[in-house]
């Protein structure tokens, strides 16, 4: 079996909280990402699903090297990312690009589409000849479905629709021909009809270009069409990981079950019993002693408050962290 493109092992990113000065070490930490392990294969799409504050965006920023992990390792295409610095890190980053949630905010309003898409080439001093650069910008715009590219090159973001803006962001990510796309809630700000376009585009890039995708979202409904596997994250941990069909049809962790039950079904006849969890994700500075989900879990037992269940394999490629999974 070929080795995976990304291998994350026991990754931990902690943030110090509260007043810390030269004289006093911080007393508490936010466990943003806490002991996370997963792989992404070449040309595979992994969905990372969880509520806001579960650490999924921090995980993406850590992969990119914009946040320093506290411990753990990130192996990307055979290179240990956590050991890289300066120009080496910059060179490695060329192979992983990120798409952000809000296409209204993630594009500089004063730059033209052509400039935005060319920016990564300029930053990495690639394709320095003008004609070469223009050709690559056009190719990226076409790959992102903005055809013909001439129409868009001179436009400003405010002259485009939300879907077109997200395509520009995707083109700017594609122009470096990365091997991994980190898509942080790429469709949650878009209309339903445009969501479908962007999701189809990502699925197509995965198939035709063998680009791996880490698709970060809070909405299980949006990932079904593109993800090969789903990882469900709760309070910095992966609580369930498995093939998309397995997780959707046989969820093993009560949190996954609850998330699935509140994901709106596309038909009033499928209105189902919603498992609505009380409150919101607890304060990640004060973690409960046993299972992290126990305080909100509808089926928690005394055992759950006492001991933290490890991620255990249930069947091939399907793991869950629950005593009663």
């Amino acid at each position: 079996m070929a080795s995976p493109l990304v291998a994350v092992r026991n990754l931990r990113t902690l943030f110090p909280v509260g007043a810390h000065s030269v004289f006093r070490a911080p007393a508490t930490f936010v466990h943003a990402v806490d002991d996370v392990t997963f792989d992404i294969d070449e040309g595979e799409a992994l969905a990372l699903v969880g509520e806001s504050g579960c650490g999924k965006s921090t995980l993406a920023l850590t992969l990119l090297g914009l946040e320093r992990p506290t411990t753990g390792s990130i192996d990307f295409a055979g290179q240990e990312m956590t050991a890289l610095k300066g120009s080496e890190l910059k060179a490695a980053r060329r192979n992983m690009q990120m798409i952000f949630q809000d296409p209204y905010e993630s594009l500089n309003p004063l730059m033209r589409v052509g400039e935005i898409v060319a920016e990564p080439l300029i930053v990495h001093k690639l394709a320095n000849a003008r004609s070469d650069r223009e050709a690559r910008v056009r190719a990226a715009l076409e790959a992102a479905g903005l055809k013909p590219p001439e129409v868009y090159l001179e436009r400003y973001p405010y002259q485009l629709s939300g879907g077109q803006r997200q395509r520009v962001a995707i083109a700017a990510a594609l122009v470096l021909e990365p091997r991994l796309l980190l898509a942080d809630e790429p469709v949650s700000m878009l209309d339903v009809s445009i969501r479908a376009e962007i999701i189809n585009l990502l699925a197509e890039l995965k198939q035709t270009r063998k680009i791996s995708i880490l698709f970060i979202t809070h909405d299980l409904g949006t990932v079904t069409a593109v993800a090969d596997r789903i990882a469900v994250m709760y309070l910095g941990r992966i609580v369930e990981l498995g093939r998309t069909a397995d997780v959707l049809t046989q969820p093993r962790h009560p949190y996954t079950k609850a998330l699935l039950s509140v994901t709106p079904a596309p038909n009033p006849r499928l209105r189902k019993e919603r498992i609505i969890l009380k409150g919101e994700t607890p304060d990640p500075t004060r973690l409960p002693g046993g299972c992290r989900f126990a305080p909100r879990c509808p089926v928690a037992q005394p055992l759950c408050l006492a001991s933290d269940p490890p991620l255990t394999a249930l069947e091939t490629g399907h793991t869950a962290a629950c005593h009663f999974g």
Binding site: V192, S193, R195, A196, T224, A225, T244, A245, L248, A265
Partner: peptide, 22 residues
């Protein structure tokens, strides 16, 4: 068309039908 553009959790990996144009 709007309904077809909506992902169906019971049929994962199915291509979604977008509504071309604006």
């Amino acid at each position: 068309a709007l309904l077809h553009a909506f992902p169906d959790p019971d049929h994962p990996q199915a291509k979604l039908n977008s509504i071309p144009g604006a």
